[in-house]
Design a protein around this nucleic acid. Sequence first.
DNA 1: TTGCTCCTCACGTCACGTGAGGTGGC
DNA 2: TTGCTCCTCACGTCACGTGAGGTGGC
Lengths: 272, 272
Amino acid sequence: VASLLTISEFSRLTHVSVKALRHYHDVGLLPPAAVDPSTRYRFYAAAQAPTALLIRRFRDLDMPLDQIRAVVESADRDARDRIVLAHLQSMERRLEQVQATVASLRGLLGPEAPRPAIAFRTLISTPALTVTARVEWDETEAWLRDNLTALRNGLEYSGGVRAGADGALYSTEFFEAHVGEVTAFIPLAAAAATDMGDAAELAGGPVAVARHRGSFADLDRTYAELGTFVAERGIGVDAPIRENYAVGIFDTDEDEALVTEVCWPILRDPES
Amino acid sequence: VASLLTISEFSRLTHVSVKALRHYHDVGLLPPAAVDPSTRYRFYAAAQAPTALLIRRFRDLDMPLDQIRAVVESADRDARDRIVLAHLQSMERRLEQVQATVASLRGLLGPEAPRPAIAFRTLISTPALTVTARVEWDETEAWLRDNLTALRNGLEYSGGVRAGADGALYSTEFFEAHVGEVTAFIPLAAAAATDMGDAAELAGGPVAVARHRGSFADLDRTYAELGTFVAERGIGVDAPIRENYAVGIFDTDEDEALVTEVCWPILRDPES
DNA sequence: TTGCTCCTCACGTCACGTGAGGTGGC
DNA sequence: TTGCTCCTCACGTCACGTGAGGTGGC
């Protein structure tokens, strides 16, 4: 006789709340082993406990139920373990981000950070290897890492000649809606680029530039300085913002060593 | 002339989405510096950027808006910094928990953990220093730490005689609804307890016991073993579950060194 | 009969996101 | 006039939690 447990017994045993168990039944994630057809009482098998524990662990990490479903319903144990490992790696990435945010909050408390110097420059139009996509805010770092890696491989494979650091363009929509067009690029020497099919042209024009040193978690302070500067002078223009990764994630493992140039498009150099 | 920015300019500058800015206005967290009375257009001052950044940072850490409000509206800078520091410390606690959960998930993938041995015991009723409260699931670890600390101080102050390890009682409601009565306790030698006003009596009775070694993040596996065992034999009884912290958080800093006895109340010893 | 456990709705929560439909100023 | 930016509703999302009101079995 396989022993069946009532919902409250199963709840105590798994540390999943009764309300949550009903919800997991409703959405089909963890249906009870048996349901009494007349009373609709739910009955769980003790053998379902490991699945419930798995769900609980992932929910503790705020994983959406849809993604948990993929784990729970994965065919064999190997497939399941592979999915779980992938999720764990992204969790560890997220953990690093949280730690960086905590550190940057501490920074907000301490003495005022030195204000980044703002300069003017006129970017010239250059050819580049590019990838463009509609990217969601939270996935940007991963997307950028993946696509710059792909571009770097493409550059090596095609024998192209690099003419500057990796970079990216961010549409105004991306900042305002937290989803929008992003372009990852590697600038190319013009001569070398002429015979490369997938090279696009990066637009030039006047920009206000600030060099940001350190973690991306602090980039917003540089944006605030730069944006305030541009707004106060009324020289802003609705064009993508460009970041040049002068010292980027492929160049160093230390967050403090990162150097990012933020180029904010403007109408004209206000000093000229 | 203090320069005022449109909502989209302010959004780009702070990396807070336009929708979020409207929401923060609606709930009164970050009202624009000016609102056009006829068009209802929102206008922000550049000086509001630091506040927006603070909100964004905290939201990245999933802090509720109500708590962020307390930070933003705190009177002076010192008060604000104190609140932020308190939050950072609880964030770091949370980070440790997440890391423990990630580690325990890795454990689920590896070889089967050894099953904890289950024994029977009859607890005798004993006096104890206790604190009882309605506790929410997510706050249990912090609540327990705080209240066991207070009990330990109380014990020292009153010169009471300890008769066993720290422990806690968890009502069935606590597991089933993820909020319910929890009692932290320190058992007392009976002779010494008679003249202590705030000593209560811990109920005794037969229990199934499992010793859990390691992080609390893995406790659910021991609960599952124990609960399955009890349920299969139909000897469960609706009484609080007792945990004895044989090696607890005050005894060691290493999660792996922790030893927790879980005592599950039963009707009778099925072997007798 | 009285509790007790379990059930099903319907609605609330939180922090926005998603459109729809509309308006003022260049 | 045409876009463009900004506006306000109303509703959706996600993973449950919160009651209200009711039922079957001991």
